[in-house]
Amino acid sequence: MKKIILFCAAGMSTSMLVKKMQAAADEIEYDCSVEAHSISEVLKVGQDADMILLGPQIKFNKKDVESKCPGIPVEVINMRDYGTLNGKNVVNHVIEVLKNKEEAK
């Protein structure tokens, strides 16, 4: 099972997207868990994720998160997908990134 963790400022707005993503993943039977957390919890919860997604409003934290969670792909969620809460697009993007990563191995 893949563990996807979303971070935003307080973990509030990303939690709306979490629901939509989980629903989209369940629909295509992609085995994953999706969680939302506040960016201040990166050190605590980030390290055992398979993939980390950042809300576009905190994209400036990307480098910092990458250095705190080495080896884990960190991506900023597409602004439009985030605003329209398009869980499907985000899940598809995650699948693609993780697939590329495994192929690279």
Partner: peptide, 19 residues
């Protein structure tokens, strides 16, 4: 989509959705 979250002071859908 943003009205209910907006009541609770969450506006990312407005900011990034409209945008």
């Amino acid at each position: 989509l943003s009205f209910i979250p907006g009541l609770f002071c969450i506006n990312e859908p407005v900011i990034f959705g409209l945008p």
